[in-house]
Nucleic acid binder design. Structure first.
Lengths: 184, 184
DNA sequence: GTCTATATGCAGATAGAC
DNA sequence: GTCTATCTGCATATAGAC
């Protein structure tokens, strides 16, 4: 694999695990098996490399969500598939995780790809919900935007509860609790 | 205020904003207006001080939740009051925030108070939901543990979405979306 | 493109004086 | 209890050789 690619992927991994504040250029270089000079040749610094890595993670998140949301079946089926898909729960969400990082939130260049990715997710879920409403799956009173935010929040919050507990169980409970409400 | 107290409160603030990885002893000392020697006289190091600060934050979270959950009214009323209470949404949850920190999660001494606090919250919500079931407010099929996890996840995830968006709006949408489901 | 040298300051303490 | 001195190593680069 090429150096730039190794740098981006290593940065993605480190940001996922340790956040921006907890990730050093030195750690990135070691993980990517790249020298100091090499890293600074390809990127102006830690922030520029992080930006590239976060954008990549956003692209990956969208593709992964579409894998379940763009399937045949009712809206409820597709949302259920999305919620119940295999996840490494204790790792959390590689994009949502960055919302906890003060330097990501403070830097518009770093926050933008996080914002855009999660906004896209809510929008995509809202589209699926709206389709379900059109088919009479959901009550006419259901607000797609709100329900989409609730679904995305259950996932992001489920990760928080699971990591705190050291077990995927609270994540799974939260998802099943949501599905019981949605299907009731 | 006494030195120990200032150290604990300053550490709470810094952990809330920057996490454990992003908080240095030096920053704590500056915020607490305490010297190096003073801090190391009262605490064996950063981890011990963080432990005390996280326990304090856990106590505060419980008290704040009970303020709404231990009120008169139906279970739904009390949960609604809890969900809708005034929050500094963009700051997030001082306890849940730590679930993102790799060193908190890796150290049993630091993870324990985070785990216990969020487990307590889920348990307390489950009690309220069980009371609501007994009064016929919720369907007999509702599982209190699961619904409690869903509610806690919506809050924690709502913070994530709001911080990413730079606006409280997704948090509020997620909460209202949940309440619409619960009250339907 | 990649490497090594160099630089300032912070991280996270320990030691001993006052 | 608090202060200052001291220590090792990392953070985050920049400069210039190869």
């Amino acid at each position: 694999m090429e150096t730039v690619e190794r740098l981006i992927r290593s940065t993605q991994e480190l940001l996922w695990e340790r956040g921006y504040v907890g990730t050093s250029p030195k750690a990135i270089q070691a993980a990517a098996d790249a020298g100091q000079g090499s890293m600074y040749h390809h990127f102006s610094g830690k922030a520029a490399l992080a930006r590239a890595a976060i954008e990549r993670s956003g692209t990956e998140l969208r593709a992964a969500a579409d894998e379940q949301l763009n399937t045949p079946g009712t809206a409820t089926d597709r949302i259920t598939r999305y919620l119940e898909r295999d996840r490494d729960v204790l790792r959390g969400c590689q994009v949502g995780r960055l919302a906890a990082d003060p330097e990501v939130i403070a830097d518009p260049e770093l926050r933008a790809p996080v914002d855009e990715t999660l906004a896209w997710l809510r929008g995509r879920l809202a589209e699926v919900i709206a389709e379900g409403k059109d088919n009479g799956e959901f009550a006419a009173t259901v607000d797609p935007q709100r329900l989409a935010a609730t679904i995305a929040a259950v996932l992001q919050g489920g990760y928080v509860l699971a990591r705190a507990a050291g077990s995927p169980e609270p994540f799974e409970q939260a998802v099943q609790g949501l599905l019981e409400l949605v299907k009731a």
